[in-house]
Write a protein that binds this DNA or RNA. Sequence first.
DNA 1: CTGGATCCCTCACGATACTG
DNA 2: CAGTATCGTGAGGGATCCAG
Lengths: 226, 226
Amino acid sequence: MKARGYGQYCGFARALEVIGERWSMLVIRDLLVGPKRFTDLHRGLPGIPTNILTSRLKELEEAGIVRRRALARPERAIVYELTEYGAELEDIVIGLGRWGAKQLGDPRPDEVVTIDSMITAFRTTFQPNAAKGIHTSFELRMGDVVLHIKVDDGRIEVGAGPLADAQLKIEAGPAIKALLNREMTAVEAIKSGAVGLTGNKKLLGTFVDLFKIDPMPITKSDARAG
Amino acid sequence: MKARGYGQYCGFARALEVIGERWSMLVIRDLLVGPKRFTDLHRGLPGIPTNILTSRLKELEEAGIVRRRALARPERAIVYELTEYGAELEDIVIGLGRWGAKQLGDPRPDEVVTIDSMITAFRTTFQPNAAKGIHTSFELRMGDVVLHIKVDDGRIEVGAGPLADAQLKIEAGPAIKALLNREMTAVEAIKSGAVGLTGNKKLLGTFVDLFKIDPMPITKSDARAG
DNA sequence: CTGGATCCCTCACGATACTG
DNA sequence: CAGTATCGTGAGGGATCCAG
């Protein structure tokens, strides 16, 4: 259970020793959405072996990042949740997600979309400035992943599951990414049928304004010093 | 050279696939300080095998994070530097370093201090608000690591090497951490001889104000719901 | 059914030596 | 200086099994 160290007395290196192991930060990403049981985590992390998940949870617990809590009687179960210290990683996860989204191409054949990754994605790409004075709500469906978004004057709440009285319900596939990174406009998406809408269709423009994936910066060509 | 994936179509997962491998983020940390040659990187990453460093650099280059550049003639050599996209990780590295520093205990027996990790550490712990209107400069020596800091009204520049006309020169061991996390006051440090000073000794108080490691948050005891 | 523990196999990593 | 080559080890992957 010994975390391999980097041999450096350095806060950054220490951080990597604790959360830099494979899968660790994905566990944290999912726990940032909310407390979860072992099985929920296992479902949300496609391909992680149970022994690895056990190891990671134990390491994170020993490092004071995750707390293991036994639920009360009706449904006696064990949930894992972030400690205060673990929850401080939220900005890091958001920032890394925003950075990584810029290089998102098309989904690879074997890649899936999980509910927690989508919730994180919308928190990540949210543009608070564009939400000033906006009060509305959305429901999104991508395959069998369903989530809802409530916008409340510069703040949002993103959660799992449907929202019956959402002002606009959006059903989309990969087109959702094309909207967020401005490869496709709201009008084009509607005309092409890439997204299906129910409710106040004009709100799709608002939706697009609220979430954005920034473009990859231009890598200046090599300064081939002669 | 295939990076193992996580099987999720998610910006955050994609980020981890590219920079989540062992050693990758430490390479980035050192390159954030400035372009470096292979040998410099190797020296700054104690224990990394050369083939692993080669692999990491190649992966980072293919991902558009690092650029390999051949220097001009006088000293024909190859340097590695961050692309614009790679440099965008600065805030992430700073944030993770700040987070990890909170759990820094005493140095382990085999841990070393490198120049780039120290430069990053001071950038990480810098408190811009405390530097308003301050104009001064420091030189720090910890063992054979020497760096300098110039403070210029809310901004700093941290660099490697000595600074002849620094207003205060500080020589210290692990006491430097005790100062940053407020385990020790400037007065105590001077009286106990934990730090050696040359120059305007009163500036040690200013120095302590400028850099800070925040405390670990209190983990609230289990809410043992009955 | 949840919440893991145990097994085996593979490949990435680590140490060392060597080359253009 | 800037890497390649070789080889051993141990963490990760995958399946199965077990206790409450």
